[in-house]
Simulated assay, not measured.
Amino acid sequence: MHPAGGQLTVRICYLGGFDPQYSRNNFLRQALAENGCEVVMCRVPPGMPTAQKYPQLIAQYAKVWRNCDLLLVPESQQTTVPLGWMLARLTGKPVVFDFFLSMHEMVITERRQFSPRSRQARRHAASDRLAGYLPDILLVQTRRFASFLQARYQVQPAKMHVAPLGVNDAVFFPRNRAIKKDPARLTVLYFGSYIPNHGVPVILDAIALLRADRRFHFRFVGDGEGKAAALAAAQARGLEIEFVARVDFSAVPQQISDADIVLGVFGDTPQADMALANKVLQPLAMCKTVLAGDTHSIREHFVHGEHLQLVPLANAAALADGLRALAADAGMRTRLAEAGYERFRERLTPRVVGADLRARLERLLTAR
């Protein structure tokens, strides 16, 4: 740690192949900066092969290591953890890994890209296991995921620090909405990339059940692997949905602001249960009414009927009933939005999450 203006500054090297605009590492770097930490990035584009990535990262780290207190390997960079560990040991630094998600769970269990008995499945499991073993500290986003890592890979609880997925409150905050084309109808927003844990087929089934209810206007914003199937299903069933292509990140807050109800995730998948979702947190940060699937991860911070409305996962009838209940009670929509916003301010802003994380990093450094 280094003195700066009368207080100590923790200097962190963010090392890996990552997109600095991706919400998770963008949020963590902001959280650290707001709590007196300095971050220097040693990075290459995401997806670069390991044989190309390692030499470039080594060269970048060689220029900055003397001015860093620790290395932090960001989310989804399991394959960079061995390099981070080696560089940390060679230069006398601790290493931290943001174990944001399990690559085995995402690729094999969630998206079923390979057989569970395949070589790729064994490779992802081995990569997860090693990434859980080598670092001095693991950052996880929920207690539920920490329990998973303990059960699956025997990671000790004391090694894990819960750094929740939060929201940049300089970007996502309450704002005025655009004038509605049809004030009599409630705009219900899904925004995302149509991945399995979002449960888009469940949302479509619920919309079909609400076909005759003219109180709703459904808007889907985004692109992704499941969009073509969603478009085809909506057209085949004659569902009235406004499909909008993916918008730039800077336009997402206005899309949220223009909605009356924002939908969370509804797929009954491990990822849905273990992870927090931007599509839940960002609208709460903007004081919007959220209807989401009921998961352990959401209940770590929010209470059904107090901060947001929850329904069982993969249950289209319950989702339709939840929308009807919200449409019938404007007062409830307002109460949920306001209470959800206050809970977000209490727990999931960069300053709050960053203060807890900085304290843990300080303990790591002083213990060495």
Results as ranks from 00 to 15, higher is better:
216 F>T: 11
356 D>T: 14
169 D>F: 07
80 T>D: 04
178 A>M: 11
180 K>R: 15
256 I>L: 11
19 D>Q: 13
213 D>S: 04
2 H>S: 12
134 L>W: 13
128 D>T: 13
171 V>A: 10
293 G>N: 01
292 A>Q: 02
72 L>K: 13
252 V>D: 07
29 R>K: 15
250 S>V: 13
202 V>I: 14
12 I>Y: 06
359 A>T: 13
355 A>K: 15
171 V>N: 02
101 L>P: 00
163 A>W: 01
329 D>V: 03
277 A>V: 05
275 A>Y: 05
126 A>V: 06
178 A>E: 10
42 C>S: 04
238 G>I: 06
361 L>M: 04
353 V>A: 02
136 D>I: 05
91 T>E: 08
368 R>Y: 08
32 L>W: 14
54 Y>N: 14
363 R>A: 05
205 D>G: 13
164 P>E: 01
364 L>H: 04
54 Y>K: 13
282 Q>T: 13
326 L>Y: 00
275 A>E: 08
224 G>S: 07
255 Q>A: 06
147 S>Y: 05
285 A>I: 05
121 A>V: 10
57 L>H: 07
163 A>V: 14
17 G>M: 03
337 A>F: 02
115 S>N: 13
92 G>H: 11
128 D>F: 07
197 N>A: 00
119 R>T: 08
275 A>G: 05
325 A>P: 02
325 A>Q: 15
292 A>V: 03
135 P>C: 03
333 R>P: 01
76 S>C: 05
104 H>I: 00
357 L>H: 06
99 F>C: 07
97 F>V: 10
251 A>R: 10
357 L>P: 10
126 A>G: 13
82 P>E: 01
92 G>N: 10
46 P>A: 03
8 L>N: 13
232 A>I: 01
305 G>V: 04
81 V>Y: 09
58 I>M: 13
156 Q>C: 08
30 Q>C: 11
47 G>R: 07
239 L>D: 04
226 G>M: 01
364 L>W: 05
131 A>C: 08
138 L>Q: 12
109 T>I: 14
202 V>P: 05
222 G>W: 11
88 A>T: 11
301 H>M: 03
234 A>T: 15
195 I>T: 15
17 G>H: 05
306 E>R: 14
